[in-house]
């Protein structure tokens, strides 16, 4: 970011100081730091993962956005790119990965499958959209989204980060229970979401 975008518009800076001084808010500085070092989790699911890898390679080079450091461990990652079809069998590990990521954390649903089930939505082992379990920040349509489309989506995520403010950041608030904690689903006769056991019991009793 150059000083033009750093500066707050209401402060007039003398001409000769313009390259040396910038007046900005803590928020802008804080968000600039965060948006320029979003480290994604090195985590691929399906076809979209290949396009995600392609976005890391020489032609698209996500390093230009400070996103080249793909971390294999969730403890060091800021961003979970859900790149591909989420199956019921794979869902518990994904939820565990998400729960292990430190705040602030973001989720990008890359491609149709992660956004809403995609072409495989009707399948018996497919979760129709990761947003049923995780709070998704950006949805990228496409099957698969090209690497450029992925980068466009990540720029959208950066815009979202820019709008957040340190005053309201939930991750600095004292809390007894992590509001973003998602209970890990159980594999039963079908996928059991622990938050919905009462619904499931009621619906199963109604079944003829």
């Amino acid at each position: 970011m150059d000083s033009e975008t750093f500066n707050l518009p209401q402060y007039e800076i003398p001409e000769d100081l313009r390259h040396a001084v910038a007046v900005t808010t803590l928020d802008r500085l804080y968000n600039w730091g965060r948006r320029s070092s979003v480290w994604p989790l090195m985590f691929g699911l399906a076809c979209c993962a290949i396009e995600m890898i392609a976005a890391q390679t020489a032609r698209y080079d996500m390093a230009r956005f400070g996103m080249e450091v793909m971390r294999p461990t969730p403890r060091q990652a800021d961003l979970l790119i859900v790149s591909g079809t989420v199956t019921k069998k794979m869902l518990p590990p994904i939820i565990r990965l998400y729960n292990q990521m430190p705040e602030p954390k973001y989720v990008v649903a890359m491609g149709a499958c992660a956004s809403g089930g995609g072409p495989f939505k009707e399948g018996y082992n497919v979760v129709a959209g990761i947003d049923k379990f995780l709070p998704v920040d950006v949805y990228i349509p496409g099957c698969p989204p090209t690497p450029q489309a992925l980068i466009a989506g990540l720029i959208k995520l950066q815009e979202k980060i820019d709008k957040q403010t340190i005053k309201e950041a939930s991750w600095y608030k004292r809390k007894v229970k992590d509001p973003n904690y998602v209970p890990v689903p159980i594999l039963g006769p079908d996928l059991i979401d622990p938050r919905r056991t009462a619904d499931i019991k009621a619906a199963a009793a109604q079944k003829e």
């Binding site: 956004s115 949805y139 990228i140 496409g142 989204p145 959208k156």
Partner: peptide, 10 residues
């Protein structure tokens, strides 16, 4: 046009 990412379902 591939720049169609959004903050909600599509």
């Amino acid at each position: 046009d591939f720049e169609v990412s959004s903050y909600g379902r599509n």
